[in-house]
Amino acid sequence: MEVKAEAPYMKSTETINEIRIKVICALIPSVMLSVIIFGFKPVISYIICVLACALTEIMLDFFVLKTNKFDFDSILTGLILSLTIPPYCPVYIAAFGGLFAIIIKKLLLERFCKKLFNVSALVRAIMFIVFGSLFKTFTPSVLTDFSSAKESYIKMFFGVGGGYICACSVIAVVLGGIILAALKIINPLIPILFMGSFSLMSFCLGNDGFSMLLSGAIPFAAVFMATDCATSPLTLKGKAVFAVTGGILTALIQILLPYSDAVFFAIIIINLLVRPIDKYIRTKPFGVLK
């Protein structure tokens, strides 16, 4: 027997695209600050990357997959991706990243492993492997020497630091995170635990976790990548475990890799853990007596 149900007749009006637009809005502070700091150079790479994503998606939909499912997801992916590359990077890198991201997402992730990985983190990690040396040349040098003086903390916080575009200002990222948390799109637990466990772990390893937190792409990744709903666990408990593991892994990988790129690899690894977490860490339903 099939229980026939048509209720509820009342539904929230929020749609997936609305959520994505809200995330894009939360990225605006980062984008604006990057313009203030680096001038209009990064804007070109945003546009190129987003365009590359959108066009690839449309092409793939039209010619290969023969569906019409265009949504804001690809634009969001493009924007996040272009924020993680160095500001003075040549545009072909951005274009390549966007193209690659959508191809991976559409042809690989959605078909074979059900969006197992966060696309932008995955592509960013691949880009690091391919263009790693290039990245170094285009990264402003402010970041490469960690001056541990107190005033540089403050500078970094308000965004005079260098590095990747997203890493230019922690305050913009924090603002974006607050917007998202207030709109109930992300659970603030994930970024907080992620960054908390990261600084604790790197403190244990004898690194200056705090300055890395302020200067690196870590807050950005914690707010915008680790919380990506498709690749984070469903339950609150699962989310906590996920975030803590992510933070610790980042600190560990950081020993092997230069400052900011470790976090993308860590996110890919914890993405792998999502399914097991969902399977084994469950909240007990209300009223199950055992």
Partner: peptide, 22 residues
């Protein structure tokens, strides 16, 4: 709002955090 297209689940977890029965 019934006639809306059904999308794939984006795993946002909203249903999980809303379900009174957890």
């Amino acid at each position: 709002e019934k006639n809306d297209v059904e999308y794939d689940c984006i795993r946002c977890g909203r249903c999980v955090s809303t379900c009174p029965m957890k």
